[in-house]
C-alpha cells in the first residue's frame, strides 16, 4: 500500500500525568516516509520528542499511537535490520575496539567462522580510518575515535535502516567536521538508508536529502519536510558557496527561531500539515519573498 520503504503513520507518544490530569502529549500525528537509500535528518528543539521517534523506529520504545512499517512489516521490538548509533557511543568498555565490532558481526551472522567475523570487522574499522587501534579499549580512545567505532559497528551489521541519535553532538567542531566527511564518504559507497537526529542546521544540509522539521513540544508535530536539492558529492568547504545553500539554511533557521514556536500546539501544528503529511518545502523553488525579505532586513541591520 505504502510507497515508502519506511512508513511512519500517526505516531504519538503520551505520558500519563501524575494524579488524574490530562496525559502529557510529547508529540502526535507524526507522519512521514523514508525511501530506500535516502538520508533523512530531523531537527527540532529539545523536548519535541525527536529521540523518542528514533527510539520507536529502533524498537526500543513503544508508541502510544500509530505504527511504523518498514519493508511492509510493522516494527515491533528491536531488530538487527535497524542499526543504531547512540549519542554517547554506547561501546562496551570491557571489550577492545575490534571486539566491540565482532560483537555486532557475530550477532548478525552467527554462523560465520571466527576468521570471517574478524576480517569483516577489520574492514569496517579500516573504513572509518581506525586501523591500528583494534586492541585498544574504548577508554583509551578519544571521543571522535569512539564515535567512529560506534559508526563502524552500525555499518558492519549492514542494517536496512541506520538510526543515528545526534551522533556528533558531543564532539568538538574540528572532529565533528572530519567525521561528517567520513560519514559522507561511507554513505556514498554504501547508500545506506539513514535517519538522523541533529541540532546542527549546517550538518543537516551537508548530509541530508531531506530534513524533517518539528514544532516545539508538547504536542509537537512534524510540520515540514524540506528538500535539500544540492547535488552530491558534497563537500563541507564547497557547499557553503552553492547558491541554494543560504536559502535552505535561512528557511531552516527561520523555522527553528520563529515558526517552530508559532506552530507549536495542537491546532496550529495541524494547520501546517497538508492533510496528514508534513508540507513538502523546497526553499530553492519558493518565491524569493519571505526569505529574501528577511535577508535584506538582516543585511540592512548590519
Amino acid at each position: 500500500m505504502s510507497s515508502h520503504f519506511v512508513e511512519v503513520q500517526g505516531l504519538a507518544k503520551r505520558y500519563p500525568a501524575p494524579g488524574r490530569g490530562e496525559p502529557l502529549t510529547v508529540f502526535e500525528d507524526a507522519n512521514f516516509g523514508i525511501d530506500k537509500g535516502e538520508f533523512v535528518c530531523i531537527i527540532g528543539h529539545s523536548g519535541c520528542g525527536k529521540s523518542t521517534i528514533l527510539n520507536i523506529l529502533a524498537g526500543l520504545d513503544e508508541a502510544s499511537d500509530g505504527v511504523v512499517v518498514m519493508n511492509g512489516r510493522e516494527v515491533a521490538g528491536p531488530s538487527l535490520e535497524r542499526g543504531v548509533v547512540f549519542q554517547n557511543y554506547s561501546l562496551l568498555p570491557w571489550r577492545s575496539t575490534l571486539r566491540n565490532i565482532t560483537f555486532a558481526v557475530q550477532a548478525r551472522w552467527p554462523r560465520w567462522s571466527r576468521e570471517e567475523v574478524n576480517a569483516h570487522s577489520l574492514r569496517f574499522l579500516e573504513l572509518v580510518g581506525l586501523k591500528g587501534v583494534e586492541q585498544r579499549k574504548p577508554s583509551q580512545l578519544s571521543g571522535g575515535m569512539r564515535q567512529r567505532v560506534s559508526i563502524a559497528r552500525a555499518f558492519a551489521t549492514q542494517p536496512q535502516l541506520l538510526l543515528m541519535d545526534e551522533p556528533f553532538g558531543a564532539l568538538d567542531a574540528l572532529t565533528r567536521g572530519m567525521i561528517q566527511e567520513e560519514l559522507i564518504r561511507i554513505w556514498e559507497e554504501t547508500h545506506q538508508t539513514v535517519f538522523m537526529i541533529t541540532h546542527d542546521v549546517d550538518e543537516a544540509i551537508l548530509l541530508a536529502d531531506r530534513i524533517l522539521l518539528m514544532t516545539n513540544g508538547p504536542q509537537a508535530r512534524v510540520a515540514e519536510s524540506v528538500q535539500v536539492a544540492i547535488p552530491r558529492p558534497r563537500q563541507r568547504t564547497d557547499i557553503i558557496h552553492h547558491p541554494d545553500y543560504y536559502r535552505i539554511r535561512n528557511h531552516l533557521v527561520d523555522f527553528l527561531v520563529n515558526r517552530s514556536k508559532e506552530l507549536s500546539g495542537s491546532a496550529a501544528g495541524a494547520e501546517a500539515q497538508v492533510g496528514r503529511y508534513p508540507r513538502i518545502v523546497d526553499p530553492t523553488r519558493e518565491p524569493e519573498s519571505a526569505v529574501a525579505d528577511q535577508e535584506t532586513c538582516r543585511q540592512a541591520a548590519m
Binding site: 562496551l92 560483537f103 555486532a104 550477532a107
Partner: peptide, 26 residues
C-alpha cells in the same frame, strides 16, 4: 545504553546475561 546495545543486536536473554550484564556487573 549497554542493555539497549544488546537489544538492538537481538541478543537472547542468556547471551545478554553473559555477554553484557555479567561483564558490566563483574
Amino acid at each position: 545504553d549497554w542493555v539497549n546495545v544488546a537489544r538492538t543486536h537481538e541478543l537472547g536473554h542468556l547471551k545478554t546475561a553473559f555477554q553484557v550484564i555479567l561483564p558490566a556487573a563483574a
